[in-house]
Design a protein around this nucleic acid. Structure first.
Lengths: 133, 133
DNA sequence: CGTTACGCTGACGTTAACGTCAACCTGTCT
DNA sequence: AGACAGGTTGACGTTAACGTCAGCGTAACG
């Protein structure tokens, strides 16, 4: 609706270059309703909203969430839209996701500590670190 | 070799109950050389080592590592075995994994912060948290 | 000795998340 | 006009990580 929406559009290739994904991936995400680029004729044009969502998708994936998991929470990030049932659901899901992420963080901390200890132990046993000081 | 190795064995079902996995999963992991239970006749008996490895496998999965990724670093955790080329490689890989995990933690922290802000924003907009104080 | 429980080995099926390929349109540069 | 770059839609292939099922063995129980 704003002026930006008209100027701030990207082709599929620009998206691919910017986010290091393939066209196939973007089309796939659209099919799965994670993105919905507008059409100029038959071609896709990705909006600022699409890009924000894509960034969240890629991040979510790095944390091990499935695309379906991600899809269900994406709506939370949509400003304008008020208090739809959609957003209400997204909110509740997001609260769960937050808990999962905090649990994951705790476990990650533990794992990092343990792995460091294991590496130290290995070094003590004689495994020579290549780039040792 | 120690006395424990003889007493401290578990059947496949005990393993399944203890770690909440299916028999299929354990056999699959064995086929992929992530575990190698001893055999009593045709049946599998899982050692303490298998259990340690399984715990690491499940943890690794939670962090989004592939079984192949995990397999390549598991050797690091094998005490006895000295300084084989295997362990040397595992060590180097583990150093990389550590870096990945620390990066992941940093991103996770950021994501948690952002998600919290987003939730706060949503609440401010009128999305009512169910269990609000 | 039958059967019930537990386990084993193939072998094929399934789901997620894309990759790959063919066949087609379309703007534009020469 | 020709051709080339860039995009599109199916449709089928692929990989990881198992699920499922059939057919078989065997140990213990009643």
């Amino acid at each position: 609706m704003t002026r930006d929406d008209k100027t701030d559009l990207m082709t599929i290739r620009q998206m691919c270059d910017a986010y290091d994904v393939t066209p196939r991936t973007l089309r796939f995400y659209e099919a799965k309703e994670l993105l919905n680029p507008i059409r100029q004729g038959t071609r896709r044009l990705f909006t600022r909203r699409d890009r924000a969502r894509l960034a969240l998708i890629l991040r979510g994936k790095r944390f091990g969430f499935s695309l379906e998991d991600i899809r269900q929470t994406l709506d939370l990030y949509d400003r304008e839209g008020g208090i739809s049932a959609q957003r209400q659901k997204a909110y509740e899901l997001a609260v769960k996701r937050l808990a999962e992420m905090e649990a994951q963080r705790a476990e990650l901390d533990l794992a990092i500590t343990e792995l460091k200890a294991e590496l130290a132990e290995a070094e003590a046993q004689g495994l020579v670190p290549r780039h040792a000081a």
